[in-house]
Design a binder for these strands. Sequence first.
DNA 1: GATGAATGAGTCTTCATTCAT
DNA 2: AATGAATGAAGACTCATTCAT
Lengths: 190, 190, 190, 190
Amino acid sequence: MARLRSDDKREAILTAAAGVFAERGLAAPTSAISKAAGVAEGSLFTYFPTKDDLINALYREIKLGLAGAMMSGFSRQADVRGKLRHIWDSYVNWGIAHPAQRKVLAQLQVSDKLTRETRAVGSAPFAEVQVMARQAVEQGVVRDMPIEVFTSTIDAMATATMELIASNPSQADKYRSLGFEVVWSGIRNG
Amino acid sequence: MARLRSDDKREAILTAAAGVFAERGLAAPTSAISKAAGVAEGSLFTYFPTKDDLINALYREIKLGLAGAMMSGFSRQADVRGKLRHIWDSYVNWGIAHPAQRKVLAQLQVSDKLTRETRAVGSAPFAEVQVMARQAVEQGVVRDMPIEVFTSTIDAMATATMELIASNPSQADKYRSLGFEVVWSGIRNG
Amino acid sequence: MARLRSDDKREAILTAAAGVFAERGLAAPTSAISKAAGVAEGSLFTYFPTKDDLINALYREIKLGLAGAMMSGFSRQADVRGKLRHIWDSYVNWGIAHPAQRKVLAQLQVSDKLTRETRAVGSAPFAEVQVMARQAVEQGVVRDMPIEVFTSTIDAMATATMELIASNPSQADKYRSLGFEVVWSGIRNG
Amino acid sequence: MARLRSDDKREAILTAAAGVFAERGLAAPTSAISKAAGVAEGSLFTYFPTKDDLINALYREIKLGLAGAMMSGFSRQADVRGKLRHIWDSYVNWGIAHPAQRKVLAQLQVSDKLTRETRAVGSAPFAEVQVMARQAVEQGVVRDMPIEVFTSTIDAMATATMELIASNPSQADKYRSLGFEVVWSGIRNG
DNA sequence: GATGAATGAGTCTTCATTCAT
DNA sequence: AATGAATGAAGACTCATTCAT
């Protein structure tokens, strides 16, 4: 039997891609990625047929990891503020812990490389957040607003918070809690 | 004074660049830009020695236009909420009116092409916003927070609002005023 | 004696190669051939050390098969015209029956992949045709001409006939007999 | 004004392509061609957008040159044999004078790179030969045969003759006239 | 032997930039 | 200054061949 395609190698390439793309942008050559991953230039293409496929896979990988980080410990018992706080903290902490992925994600969002399907797959794991948002509005705990406003608000504010922390890490705790207070005051009802 | 012919050409190139970059990303070839601008491929380089210079110039141009739109009609007499509302509306309206520039700006922000100087120059015209922010905090009208949090909040929320409007233009008025309410409630004191 | 399993595999590869080369040209990747043959990519190289070796082996195989088809039923008793008719018909019929091999052969002839030895080996089984040609000339049955003219004439005309039949199969019988008349009238003496 | 695209350069590339393809096959790298033509690798692509375009252009060029050689001096007054002799001689002589083009043509004929349109364009200039063939048949000067048989016969025999001459140039005159005798005897009526 | 992942040289093509006109 | 052909350094991707399993 021949060497089997290894998940380790696939993972190494994706990790290398995140690092390289974060530093040099999505235009970085695939050769830089394969080099960083410690594989031959051609090997990258046994795992990802094209650079665009790699980019899409990376997006999914990042979103999945993010979803894992955000959803673990998500309590259905907590009240809306508690749920939101959990999401907020885990999202921001993920960004702190994975700076390369955070940067890449920002570039991927505005790139034209993602397929419609990839975007859909990337959003799926966050369905529960949507549900929470809807319920919060219905229960009157937060303002009467379309859910897309709700989720955009959290996303935008969390992203901004991560960037502030990235440029001034010593203030992480302050930025994170302050950010949450702003968000919560902004959306809560009354 | 009448504009020189070459100023027109420079302008045409910048406008074309905004359109092409918005559609095809910053990796779009300079030849596509010169073509869209109606000038020869080589002519682009008499106005911008390198592609990166063009990109930096475009950033400045966009930021300057944005500053113009935001600052015109800015009243020093108005109260903090009034000033903020003006800034908010003019920022969001600018985004609606200049979709290509808005998209390009989003890409430029996360790119690694901008020089430190360019970023500084781009921020300068918004100094007055900073002043207002500082005063608002000092007067206790808004929460006690570092100004970078203040400005990041507005920027992030306005950007998110523009994107919502872009994907659902019929709800522009609703999104804009709702967004402002969220922001204001989020940052005001008490 | 039963064929060894590996002989089957070798045969499968050669057959697959004929089909793939006929469709996609000699530049077709070896991976396409191994796939068509139902063997692993690497296995091809246990039977043929290099792609060129495979190509040369395929040429020999095709020529050998062709020789078998042409020489079976070849009568030493028949007169020159009869012998020639037999060769002609069996050659043309082989082309009709083996379209892929015919196409590949045409490509191989003009390629630079065949070794001198391969070409020699490929010609050998047709020695008897050469003998017949020589005798025919000596006996004065056909024109006084160098044998290479004799064989080239038959080869060229038969090939042309096969191509006509390939592009218009319903006229096969007509093309074949007409072609023979042209050839025979062309070379016979007086 | 910039340097204008020069026909000379285009011609140089086509000539180089003929030489390189003749020696190394159609799989020869474009870099070898640009080098042989004395231009930069990229320049080839300002004249021919893709390698396939170059190949198709080369085919047309060769066929056009061949048509020019064959049709010049073609007399409508001559009898059928005379016309045919002219075509035969000029065709064979062209092959002798342009060995690289002859070899390339042989490879192009069996390649899958030529578009339907290219093949059509390549055949067009030989319409007059078709006309002659048809008339010859109608007048009963040659056998009753479909024209495609007529033209295929001439083409196949002339090609074979050129190859014989190529491998034994000293016998050129003999091969050429002998070939013609074979063809004429083969197709004439009675 | 069989397998197919791994390799990396080689290929076509793009494109920022230069420069002859 | 304007033009656009010329340049050649990259870059994405292919594929014959090797080799670990």
